[in-house]
Structure formats: structure tokens, C-alpha cells
Simulated assay, not measured.
Amino acid sequence: MRNIRIALISFGIAGLAMSAQARELMPNDRYMCSWGAGTAARAQELKLAGVSLYAARQKIHSYKFSKSWMRMMAMGITEQTYDSPTRFKPEAVRQSFYNDCVKYKLARK
């Protein structure tokens, strides 16, 4: 009887874990992660090319953004990228940012 109870509890916990992992991102969240990953990759390209943070900020100010939150988010992502000592290729930064963003968005749900 005790073994059956332990088995049922184990299956119940496994079922909860599987349902938590099956959540999907909303299209807006997926877009935000994709956009942020592209921004991080562009910032890494500028950093590796030797462009100063000041010049990178000026480039961001010259861009036209479709949403009001994008300019400040781009500034934050760029500053964090420049503060990081990594010398990863931009594509690796893009993939890492996207994966971490998706994990964060899923964990919030």
C-alpha cells in the first residue's frame, strides 16, 4: 500500500512538471525576445568593431522605432552588452539572449 501511494505521488508530481513545461509563449513575448536578441547582436557587432558606447548610443537615437518602449530597451541592452567582457560572436549573443529571454518569460507564467 505504501509503494502504491509513493508511485501515485511521483506520477502526480511528474504530471505537474510536464504541464508546467508545456506552456507556450504569447506572440508578443516571442516578438520581444526576437527583437531584443537582434538588438543585442547588433550591439555586440559594434562593440567588436571598436565603436565606442557613445557612438552606439548616437546610432540608437537615429533609429526609428515602431513602439515607444523600444528606444529605452535598446539603450539598456546596448549598455549591458558593452559592460560585458565577453568577446562572443554576435550570432552566439543573439542565440543566448533569445534562449534566456524565453526561459524568463516562461518562468513568469
Rank of each mutant, 00 (worst) to 15 (best):
I6M: 13
R87F: 05
G15D: 00
S34G: 06
A92D: 09
I4T: 10
M32C: 12
M32D: 14
F65K: 04
K103H: 07
A74G: 03
M18N: 03
A7Q: 11
D83T: 15
L48Y: 05
N3D: 10
F97V: 05
R71M: 10
A74E: 04
A22Q: 06
G12V: 06
E79T: 10
P90I: 04
P27Y: 00
W35Q: 03
V93M: 08
A56N: 07
W35P: 01
S84Y: 08
A20R: 04
N28L: 11
M1E: 11
P90Y: 01
Y54S: 12
S52Y: 09
G15N: 00
A74N: 09
Q44R: 09
M18T: 12
L46F: 12
R30Q: 10
L106Q: 01
R5H: 15
A74I: 04
Q80N: 15
Y31Q: 00
R42N: 10
P85V: 13
F11N: 05
I13W: 05
K103E: 11
R87P: 00
A7Y: 12
L106V: 01
A74F: 06
Y104N: 12
A22V: 03
A43D: 08
A40K: 05
K67D: 06
F11E: 01
S66P: 02
R94Y: 13
S52I: 10
I13E: 04
A56S: 13
R42T: 14
L106C: 01
Q58K: 10
N3M: 12
Q21W: 15
A92L: 07
M75I: 13
G36K: 03
R30A: 12
R2H: 07
